[in-house]
Amino acid sequence: MDYQTALGFAAPLAVGIAAIGSGLGIGRAVGSAMEAMGRQPEAAGKIQTAMIIGAAFIEALTIYVFIVFVMASGKIH
């Protein structure tokens, strides 16, 4: 397997793995936040803020992978 073929296989696979990982991460974060808000509705603001920041970081990781994918796919001929 040459470099081009390996890159052609690996780049979309990496995006897929990152999407699965961030999907699981966001799902877990939202689930825990809902549980925490159910237990303590008066702390909903703090929980939401922490969750928004966490979700933004998880989403940013996926976007980083997407950017790397675009950069790598430019090298596939």
């Binding site: 939202v30 808000m37 909903a44 939401q48 969750m51 928004i52 979700a55 933004a56 989403e59 940013a60």
Partner: peptide, 19 residues
Amino acid sequence: WSIVNMLLLSTLIRSALTP
């Protein structure tokens, strides 16, 4: 891009996940 992303994400979460 990141600012708009954060704004929309926070608005979406605030409106979707409220007690």
